[in-house]
């Protein structure tokens, strides 16, 4: 788990009572460079909030002890800056409305048939949170999405900078700037671009599959 040693890595919490989903999401996001916390219900998630201080939460709705919706209400009042992505097996319309009213931009349906989308959504949420909190965006995740997707930085330059940053225990952003791959202004531009281009959407109930 390359990213997990880095305390400055962006942090994401996955809250889902299904172990397999927690494990899968952890594997996917750790590979992206996130530090991932796992909680199996809403109450445990709340207990971990202070210590983990995540940049984004992935939240299942149907959970024992404390439902996702109840957790969402607490999160939105206590940590209004922290972005939440709702993951659900089946989004009923009424539920979608309630979730949207609570300020959730993104709902993802399980199972994830397109991982690249999930990665993009998580990066977007992290970027938003960091911008709200005034914290720097300087680590592998979410920079991987921000810089590589719109081609601001070449893939090999990114990987080179990444291994250098790990060796020197220096932020990825500063190495990229040192290497001359990007400027401070260019990065800000890239972040803006990324937010603009990552459109949020509620799930479409339409099944395009053939019957």
């Amino acid at each position: 788990m390359e990213g997990t040693n880095n305390l400055n890595a962006a942090r994401v919490m996955i809250v889902d009572d299904a172990g397999i989903i927690r494990m899968t999401v952890s594997r996917i996001l750790e590979k992206e460079g996130y530090h991932v916390y796992e909680a199996e219900d809403g109450l445990r998630a709340l207990a971990m909030m202070e210590e983990s201080s995540p940049d984004a939460l992935l939240l299942d709705l149907k959970m024992p002890v404390m439902t996702g919706l109840d957790l969402l209400r607490v999160l939105k009042s206590e940590w209004p800056d922290t972005e939440v992505i709702v993951i659900t097996a089946y989004a009923e319309d009424q539920m979608v409305r309630q979730v949207e009213e609570l300020g959730v931009m993104q709902i993802v349906t399980k199972p994830f048939t397109d991982l690249s989308l999930l990665k993009k959504f998580v990066a977007r949420a992290v970027v938003e949170t960091r911008l709200s909190k005034g914290k720097p965006i300087e680590d592998e995740a979410p920079l991987r999405q921000v810089l590589l997707l719109n081609g601001r930085v070449r893939h090999e330059d990114f990987e080179k900078a990444l291994s250098r940053s790990r060796g020197k225990n220096q932020s990825l952003k500063s190495v990229l700037i040192e290497q001359g791959n990007i400027t401070e202004a260019g990065l800000q531009e890239a972040v803006k671009d990324f937010i603009r281009n990552t459109e949020t959407s509620v799930p479409d109930a339409l099944c395009a599959g053939t019957m």
Binding site: I20, K31, K110
Partner: peptide
């Protein structure tokens, strides 16, 4: 049933895509 199946399915799909990359 669908709710129950979606979670393991999420695991299969997620990990498979991860391995594929």
């Amino acid at each position: 049933v669908a709710h129950e199946i979606n979670n393991p399915l999420g695991g299969i799909l997620g990990i498979t895509q991860l391995l594929l990359s």
